[in-house]
Simulated assay, not measured.
Amino acid sequence: MEAVAFVKQPARARRRFSRTGRRQQWVLACALLSQAGCSSTGDLTSQMVPHSWRGNPWGPDAETARHCRRLPTIPSNPPMCAWDAWGRANLRDGDIVFRMGDARLAFGLYPFSKISAEMAGSRYSHTGIVALENGEPVVYDTYKSGPRKQPFSIWVLDVAGAIAVKRPDADSQRFVNDAVAFCRDTYQRQVPFDKRLSLDDDRFYCIEFTERAYRSAGLVLSEPIRIDHLPCYQHFPKAVWLARHFSSIRPDQSAFVIGNDSVGIWSNPALLLIYEAPDARLPYAKLSAP
């Protein structure tokens, strides 16, 4: 799409576009050279931990530290209370939660979440799996710091767009317990984050974490897709060029994606959509869940 716009613009506009394009390339190059995610300035929950804390701020050590008050608890507010009450009333073990995040690279200049989701033709950039623990819904996912467990009311703070919940149908509910057990085990072992988006099982990126959890239980959510076969891959030539030259990610490698109605986890017919909203300011409605 950008290439078409470039051809149709007059010379002065083309020069201006060229300068802008070079700036965008420089920003993305900085992002890729900074190990793809060292400056995720868009995530609110990443800013809720004292600078003195070392390690995963939502891992087992941090969980223990909060219980012992060596780390401050996260203060609540009315929207968080509303989401907590909504989650307690409506969410179940094994629900898959989707969100558009706002993870940014290169000191916040490059909207990594938005671009990665758009390349995959998706409204969402991140997934996690719900578990009910002492009546409270928590979300297991993984991030650059490693596997995390966050109360659902905190997890929604990082929503920067749409939010959705899907649930395995009645025939697939038998896979839920083992999938949640996988999440808890991965969390306790702190399996490293996979910056290379590989398909090895010794480290995971966020979408792969969700896929592997259900595959370990016997339910295949999706098949990996080649990066250069993503629905909107051709719309991002600059990102593709820089990724090929400044990172270890190859266009011909395969990865798990959230996708849409046609590809990825989202397209699995065994997952029933039970909630979707354009944002997470407040719960819009009760779930009409099966």
Score class of each variant (00 low, 15 high):
His126Trp: 06
Ile129Gln: 06
Ile129Gly: 02
Val130Gln: 00
Glu133Leu: 09
Gly135Leu: 08
Gly135Glu: 07
Glu136Gly: 04
Glu136Cys: 14
Pro137Asn: 13
Asp141Met: 03
Thr142Asp: 04
Arg148Leu: 01
Lys149Gly: 02
Trp155Met: 10
Trp155Lys: 11
Val156Asp: 01
Asp158Leu: 09
Ala162Asn: 12
Ala164Tyr: 12
Arg167Met: 09
Pro168Asn: 06
Asp169Thr: 07
Asp169Gly: 15
Asp169Trp: 07
Asp169Gln: 14
Ala170Ser: 15
Ala170Gly: 05
Ala170Ile: 15
Asp171Trp: 10
Arg174Glu: 01
Phe175His: 10
Val176Cys: 00
Asn177Val: 04
Asn177Leu: 01
Asp178His: 02
Asp178Gly: 00
Asp178Val: 00
Val180Asp: 00
Ala181Ser: 10
Ala181Asn: 09
Ala181Gly: 03
Arg184Leu: 06
Asp185Ala: 13
Asp185Gly: 02
Thr186Cys: 12
Tyr187Ser: 11
Gln190Glu: 07
Val191Asp: 01
Pro192Gly: 03
Pro192Thr: 07
Lys195Trp: 04
Lys195Met: 04
Lys195Asn: 03
Ser198Ala: 07
Leu199Arg: 05
Leu199His: 09
Asp200Ser: 06
Arg203Val: 00
Arg203Gln: 08
Phe204Ile: 03
Tyr205Gln: 02
Phe209Glu: 04
Thr210Tyr: 11
Glu211Gln: 13
Ala213Asn: 02
Tyr214Glu: 01
Tyr214Arg: 00
Arg215Phe: 01
Val220Ser: 10
Val220Met: 06
Leu221Tyr: 06
Glu223Met: 08
Arg226Asn: 03
Asp228Cys: 13
Leu230Phe: 15
Pro231His: 12
Tyr233Ser: 02
Tyr233Ala: 09
His235Pro: 00
His235Leu: 13
Lys238Leu: 08
Ala239Gln: 07
Ala239Glu: 11
Ala239Leu: 07
Ala239Met: 10
Ala239Cys: 09
Trp241Pro: 03
Trp241Asp: 09
Ala243Ser: 14
Ala243Thr: 13
Arg244Asn: 13
His245Ile: 13
His245Cys: 11
Ile249Asp: 04
Ile249Tyr: 14
Pro251Glu: 12
Gln253Lys: 15
Gln253Cys: 14
Ala255Tyr: 10
Ala255Gln: 15
Asp261Ala: 14
Trp266Glu: 00
